[in-house]
Design a protein around this nucleic acid. Structure first.
Length: 309
DNA sequence: AAACTGCTCAACCGCAACCCC
DNA sequence: TGGGGTTGCGGTTGAGCAGTT
């Protein structure tokens, strides 16, 4: 109880504090956090010191870099696989912390929740969601239907013995894969894709390339689409495809029973995220996708969170 | 140009697991 | 083996920034 009398400093860290913390880690390694305070080095809790180190001071962190499209993909897929196990997910993203992943995911959730808000829904609905890892908007928007192709894929996949686990596969499949169904094994092409668009990358991509992504826990097999899904994919190229949505309000459309909200394409995300700006063109296919929440599909699975498995 | 809105990021809190005595 | 201390994790919050109106 003595310790409580000592003032515990909170709030933003100063450079001097960082320096002290770094020195401590250099001497003793990233441990004994509580001893930093007991030795009087810093008036911070061990917890706070650890957090500061892990989130900001640790070497090889990609501070200030937006998530690349590959990273986004990984997060989406790993979240579907592991649930809100941010620390675990972060281990697959070199240079990213669990906090980064958490923040990334939660901002996507917020964005999506806001986009899906209909006039009839309670304005506070998006704020009342206690668990961002779940699918709040599905509860709030009962008329939002699970996309047909997803359901059909479920059936389709369940009949294919090559898939490890039906429910898991459904979660792992992202639309970019469907848009580029001919991509062979995704994981093996990850870097190729990355380098193909290296000129659009933020500088931090260079450092990213120094840290090859470790293998995903479960490699994605080449995607096989159900006939319905393939038809849907084919329609993405159809100019009339966009007539389905036209200039209608997306949220209203969803409220009437969603057609099939579509995740931005891989390359759309690429150009959008890396430059950090939205496209101006009002209704190009790209901007069209841009107006959709990028994670709309990520939450369609009716299954409980994988963390409950 | 100012006000407003949304987004990102850093940090805190509570809880649970782990470790050590 | 139990208790206290430490560490790790996930959820949440708030400040500051950027974009939009």
């Amino acid at each position: 109880m003595e310790g409580e009398r000592e003032e515990i400093k909170k709030g933003p860290w100063k450079a001097e504090e960082d320096e002290v913390l770094i020195n401590h880690v250099n001497k003793y390694g990233p441990r004994d956090w509580s001893s930093i305070r007991s030795k009087g080095l810093l008036q911070r809790t061990g917890k706070s010191c650890r957090l500061r180190w892990v989130n900001k001071l640790r070497p090889n962190l990609k501070n200030g870099c937006k998530f690349s499209s590959e990273e986004e993909r990984l997060v989406i897929e790993l979240q579907a696989q592991f649930g809100n196990k941010w620390a675990r997910i972060a281990t697959y993203l070199p240079g990213r912390t669990d906090n980064d992943v958490k923040n990334f995911w939660s901002s996507r959730q917020k964005r999506l929740a806001r986009i899906l808000q209909t006039p009839s829904s309670s304005p506070s609905s998006s704020q009342s969601h206690k668990n961002p890892g779940e699918v709040p908007f599905l509860h709030d928007f009962p008329t939002l239907e699970v996309p047909n192709f997803s359901a059909s894929m479920e059936e389709d996949l369940s009949s294919k013995s090559s898939y490890i686990d039906n429910s898991e596969m459904i979660k792992l499949v992202g639309l970019p894969d469907m848009v580029e169904p001919n991509l062979p094994a995704l994981e093996t092409n990850l870097f190729q894709l990355q380098f193909n668009h290296a000129d659009q990358k933020t500088p931090c991509m260079e450092s990213q390339s120094q840290f090859p992504f470790p293998h995903l826990p479960q490699p994605q097999p080449a995607l096989t689409l159900s006939p319905e899904s393939q038809e849907l994919v084919a329609r993405l190229d159809d100019p009339n495809f966009f007539d389905v949505f036209g200039d209608r309000d997306v949220s209203q459309e969803l409220g009437n029973g969603a057609q099939f909200p579509v995740e931005p394409t891989f390359f759309e995300l690429e150009s959008c995220k890396s430059c950090g700006k939205r496209k101006e063109n009002p209704m190009t296919p790209d901007s069209f996708f841009d107006d959709f929440p990028t994670d709309m599909f990520d939450h369609m699975e009716p299954l409980p969170s994988p963390s409950e498995w």
